[in-house]
Amino acid sequence: MPFPNIDPIAIHIGPFAVHWYGIAYVVGILGWWRYSLWLSDKYPNPSRKDIDDFIVWAVFGVVLGGRLGYVLFYKPDYYFSHPLEILQTWHGGMSFHGGLLGVIVTIAFFARKRGMGFLDFSDVACCGVPIGLFFGRIANFLNGELFGRITDSSWGVIFPHGGPLPRHPSQLYEAFFEGALLFFVMTFFATKSPLGHRRGFLTGLFLAGYAVARITAEFFREPDAFLGFFAGGVTMGQILSLPALAFGLFLMIRTRQSHVAP
């Protein structure tokens, strides 16, 4: 099927243009904020005020970490030669793994400042992250970027910059698995299962769940042309997801010996 004729610019305001990509980030962050406020009522920490105060830190960590992660992990030579383009985030080019590291750093500083444990905060904070992932992947689709590999399936899409052959709409696969499905899994364990109250379990579940979803999606996603495949046919996205998978599983296993909060 042909790619839907959707302008990546949602709104023109005089000389300014509001991109769907930017709107997706705003909606994702606001969705995370409202969901985290609701979830924080079910846990002793963090408080609603902590969530309110952290949202600025979260934006800083996501945007700065995501952009620097893309620059350093994916195209360091190019951006070091064109440093001004590092600021042009409206053209795309954000790394989830970089954003994850950015948020980890900001949570560490924020939690220490508020006198609470890192995992106490991250267990609640991570549950709403799939909301942002969902809208971010939808924005990738609207931008016609990060498309999938060539396919003969009936739902293949001919992307504007993907050549004449249909490709997997891998952005939509990721929106479902990294976003919608992971969100419902996280919500179930956070609200219905006593495991959700074991310190570190939800953080581990999110890291492992995202890593599995991303590694799987990478089998359908076209690797970046400037990187291609690495040894054994693996991609950069799969390589970067392995540490998250390992640490997530470690946290989940570790919580078997931890106390279950009432």
Rank of each mutant, 00 (worst) to 15 (best):
A17I: 02
V18Y: 06
W20D: 04
W20H: 13
W20A: 07
W20I: 09
Y21G: 06
Y21T: 05
G22V: 06
I23T: 05
A24W: 11
V26N: 03
V27C: 04
V27N: 10
V27A: 08
I29M: 14
I29Q: 10
G31R: 01
W32A: 07
W32G: 11
W32V: 07
W33C: 03
Y35E: 10
Y35F: 13
L37C: 13
D41R: 09
K42R: 15
K42E: 15
P44L: 09
N45P: 00
N45S: 01
N45K: 14
S47M: 02
S47W: 06
R48W: 15
K49W: 08
D50F: 01
I51L: 09
D53Q: 15
F54C: 01
F54K: 09
I55M: 15
I55K: 08
V56E: 10
V56I: 12
V59M: 04
F60P: 01
F60T: 15
G61P: 06
V62W: 04
V62M: 15
V63N: 13
L64F: 13
L64V: 13
G65A: 05
R67C: 01
L68A: 13
L68R: 08
G69M: 11
G69C: 06
V71L: 04
L72R: 01
L72A: 12
L72H: 08
F73S: 07
F73P: 08
K75R: 13
K75Y: 14
K75L: 02
P76D: 13
P76E: 10
P76Q: 05
D77Y: 13
D77F: 15
Y79R: 07
F80Y: 15
S81W: 04
S81P: 00
H82Y: 01
P83L: 11
L84T: 06
L84I: 11
L84S: 10
E85N: 02
I86N: 12
I86P: 10
L87C: 05
Q88H: 07
T89K: 02
H91A: 03
G93N: 11
S95I: 06
S95G: 07
F96L: 14
F96Q: 03
H97Y: 14
G98Q: 10
G99D: 12
L100I: 12
V103T: 12
V103D: 00
I104E: 08
T106N: 01
A108K: 10
A108Y: 03
F109R: 12
F109Q: 12
F110T: 10
F110K: 11
F110I: 02
A111H: 05
A111T: 02
R114S: 09
G115A: 03
M116T: 12
M116E: 15
M116R: 10
G117H: 02
L119Q: 04
D123M: 02
V124D: 05
A125M: 10
A125H: 08
C126I: 14
C126D: 03
C126W: 15
C127W: 00
V129S: 02
L133Y: 14
F134I: 09
F135K: 09
R137D: 13
A139W: 03
N140C: 03
F141N: 03
F141D: 04
F141T: 04
L142Y: 05
L142P: 04
N143S: 09
G144C: 08
L146Q: 13
F147Q: 07
G148P: 07
G148Q: 09
G148W: 14
R149D: 08
I150F: 01
I150K: 13
I150E: 15
T151M: 05
D152T: 09
S153Y: 09
S153H: 10
S153R: 12
